[in-house]
Design a protein around this nucleic acid. Sequence first.
DNA 1: ATTAGCACTCTTTTAAGTCGAGTGCCAATT
DNA 2: AATTGGCACTCGACTTAAAAGAGTGCTAAT
Lengths: 338, 338
Amino acid sequence: MTLLTERQLEVVLAVVYEYIECGEPAGSRTIAKKYLRGCSPATIRNEMSDLEEMGYLYQPHTSAGRLPTPMAYRLYVDAIMQRRRTPHPGINGWLDDIRDQRRDMESVLAYASQLLGKVTSYVGVAAIAPLEDVAIHRIDFLRLGGETVLVVIVLNGGLIHSRTILLPADISQDMLDNISRSINTIASGNPWGQVREVIYSYLVQELEQIFHSCREAIDQMDLILSSRKYRLFTGGARYILALPDFQDMGKLKAILSLLEEEQNLAVIVEKCSQKEGVRVTIGDENPVPGISSCSVVTVASSTRGQRAVLGLIGPMRMDYERSIALLETMLKGLYEDF
Amino acid sequence: MTLLTERQLEVVLAVVYEYIECGEPAGSRTIAKKYLRGCSPATIRNEMSDLEEMGYLYQPHTSAGRLPTPMAYRLYVDAIMQRRRTPHPGINGWLDDIRDQRRDMESVLAYASQLLGKVTSYVGVAAIAPLEDVAIHRIDFLRLGGETVLVVIVLNGGLIHSRTILLPADISQDMLDNISRSINTIASGNPWGQVREVIYSYLVQELEQIFHSCREAIDQMDLILSSRKYRLFTGGARYILALPDFQDMGKLKAILSLLEEEQNLAVIVEKCSQKEGVRVTIGDENPVPGISSCSVVTVASSTRGQRAVLGLIGPMRMDYERSIALLETMLKGLYEDF
DNA sequence: ATTAGCACTCTTTTAAGTCGAGTGCCAATT
DNA sequence: AATTGGCACTCGACTTAAAAGAGTGCTAAT
């Protein structure tokens, strides 16, 4: 891969910056006047022509200015990431709002995602999941009728999982309460991995006759807890309607589909939570299809038994710098609360 | 109000039906040929002209066919509601899907709303709230750190409420467990109204010194439980993009805004849950602004300590007949499970 | 009361023409 | 050898004009 000259780099970054700001193809004249005062438009044109050959720029049609390719965005984002980031100003007021209406975590995250969307005009994402070794606070069973039982698991960070399971026999609520009591004496304060082992061995010793019945129930709980499923929230989808990039119904549909299909969204969140800090994926770099014309900025962090992710999904020409600053500031702000 | 002649009624209903089916203004020729074979287009034209004066029809422009006004839709829907409804065929397979992946209630409702949207191309809504007098299964406290405590309330139907509250002192988890134990002995199986009274009198007698501190906590819980807040789910928003009625960004924004603002959606659900059964609101009849060009069909029902609502939000020319049948069938199907 | 006929209206579609932004290239300049 | 000014050329965006089509309103006949 041929390296870029200093000036070529400048031109690429200028085109990206200009396009992010104005939303229209950048012409040689504009770039020369606003970003590289020392050069004439003709010079820029030559550079641009070369850069197009190299795959950094392209023209939507012959007589238009240049647009950045994903490669150019990548260059731009990498450049930004190296710079020192300043915190995003002016969301402190909103964070106070969140703090004031003391709510459960889900509401807070839902609100945070809405806020992210509102402020940026992109789609805000917030997600949280328990860490693998988080301790269980309490397990509770609630007879819903017949053989269906609702299992409620409260984890130590405050996350709550619930799920109905089917027992092979109609067990009374009193009996369930007893079971719950026994389990909680060993479970409370310990991670599921340990708890499961203890329950298993207990079952084998004491309750062999109903072992198989319970085993399925335990497997169910295993599924709930080991899936480490993210609780996902998105907000602000309505604001992207105003963006010129989403006037196309096709793109709109793609992004709405993504938001409504938790699985795909989970893949994105999953990917980014593998390491702490900011992560930017551009266009095709995204692991899910359909949003290849979008970019995703996320920031992840783990504390107190939980992994939290905040993110923004926007057009490829989204304001990466501002988005990153906003996400970092907000994540930090939220952590001060929890 | 002048009454409609038999034939006028027929014409109005025909125009509504035709428009619902085809999505285009209905001309006199079409109506005469497809719905009133006995009459010539000219006759229909005369009737239409009268009906326009009466406020049932209108023309988008001089040389176009007629469209139904909200009044006409109302007439049509009232006519439908009197008819005997047949169950919606072909969703049994999907209901089985729901049944198979035995999940917690929230997932089921989320899935149901998605399904409603997918099948109809409108927006599906599902909501559930506890009845006022539903019994409490369990109240649990979890120390999150410092003075913040997470209260988890499991209600007898399986609904779970949680919320962080601020206590005036840093209370240890052991202490919280004790409190929880005491409360549960009196709370479990009883509705909150009673429980609150008992706790109050207990506090007054035993714990006067910290009465005020706890009082606030109890008030908080009061707020959680007496708000009877609906848990809301919507799904299928992406499908409306394909409808000709929502090609307009303005309308799209209005409906997305509604979906993202729980409050407004709650108003709609609230209204319809006041009586059992089907309810159709057309255009301006809707209690919230912004969706005056949409209709909402809902069906509500209460059992086992819970009120459930299923609904569809679609264009005014939505297929009311099919929508109603679908909602009724699905609600019935869901109740067989829970 | 109903209907056939016809002129009229208004949107939609198609075609043609103009405008302007921006490029590519060449020859002149540094 | 790199840079620059000049100029012809391209292609989309916008404007205008004309034609087509669907449907009505009205009038006169049945």
